[in-house]
Every structure is written in structure tokens, then in C-alpha cells.
Simulated assay, not measured.
Amino acid sequence: MRYLLDTDHLSIIQRQSGADYNNLAARMAQYPPSDFAISVITIQEQMLGCHAYINRARHPTELVKGYDIMIRLVADFQRLSILPFDAIAAQTLDRLNTQRIQLARMDARIAAIALSRSMILLTRNHRDFSKVTGLVIEDWTIGR
């Protein structure tokens, strides 16, 4: 595995429409699927979003939609390798925390997983992830 998909890139793949998707899909098609992975943190972020949607539902149709989204997420997660937040990622996160980088909690965990495995993080969030020394980031939603 060479590339870790940030949650934003995975969401674009899931939508399957628009210029961002076309650019990302074209770039990814140049590599074998085994070169890509997602983190367990991305699963957590997407499931939390789905959970919040279901909890806000006021009508049965909204519940149906929320649970349909959850089923699609589970199917999507089965298509990609999932990287755990393991002891090495935890040590990397500790090092990041000592640097006092202003980074959201989930982003720091994703960065720690990418750093601990020497992977390139595919993300549109350059503003935040560029603060992490040594983290290689690329945005494949931008046309070449």
C-alpha cells in the first residue's frame, strides 16, 4: 500500500460524480487497487456522521435514508484495505502531540497512521495536514 485516502477523498469516490471525482478516479485507475487503503479513523468519522443523521431523523423516510447510507458505508469499507490505529500509530501520535501542532483530533490520528507506515496521504486538506512535518500529502482531485 502506498496511498492512504483521507475521509474527504473517500467521500468523493462514494459520490461518484463531478470534476473532483473524475480527476480522482482517473488518477487512481493508474494504480492497482492494492496501492490504496483507508484508516479505521475514516470509518469512525463516516459512521459518526451517519449516526448523527439517523439521530436527527424526524420522519420514517429520513430513518430509511440514514440506514441505507449506513449499509452503503459498510459495503464501501469492504472494498478497501483498512489500516488500524495500532501501537506504532499511537507512538507517532504522541510525537505529534508533543509538537503542539494545531490539528483536529481525527486528522492527527489519520496523519499518525500515514506517517507510521510511510504512506502518501491523499487529501484536499492541505491547510491542516501541511503542518505535519514529514507527512507527504497530495490532492488527486485537481486536474493535471
Rank of each mutant, 00 (worst) to 15 (best):
M1P: 12
R2K: 14
H9K: 11
I13K: 06
R15W: 05
Q16E: 15
G18H: 12
N22G: 04
N22C: 06
N22E: 15
L24D: 08
R27V: 02
M28H: 09
S34Q: 14
F36A: 02
S39G: 10
V40G: 08
V40Y: 02
I43T: 10
C50G: 09
Y53A: 13
I54E: 00
R58H: 08
G66I: 02
M70Q: 12
M70F: 04
V74H: 10
V74T: 13
D76G: 04
Q78C: 11
Q78N: 14
S81V: 09
L83F: 06
P84V: 08
F85W: 03
F85S: 00
A89N: 00
A90I: 07
Q91C: 09
R95D: 11
N97D: 04
N97M: 13
L103G: 03
A104M: 06
I110F: 05
L115A: 06
S116K: 01
R117K: 13
S118M: 08
S118D: 15
I120N: 12
L121E: 07
L122G: 12
T123H: 01
R127W: 02
F129G: 01
F129T: 10
K131I: 08
V132N: 01
G134Q: 04
L135K: 03
V136Q: 15
I137H: 00
W140D: 07
T141N: 02
G143A: 15
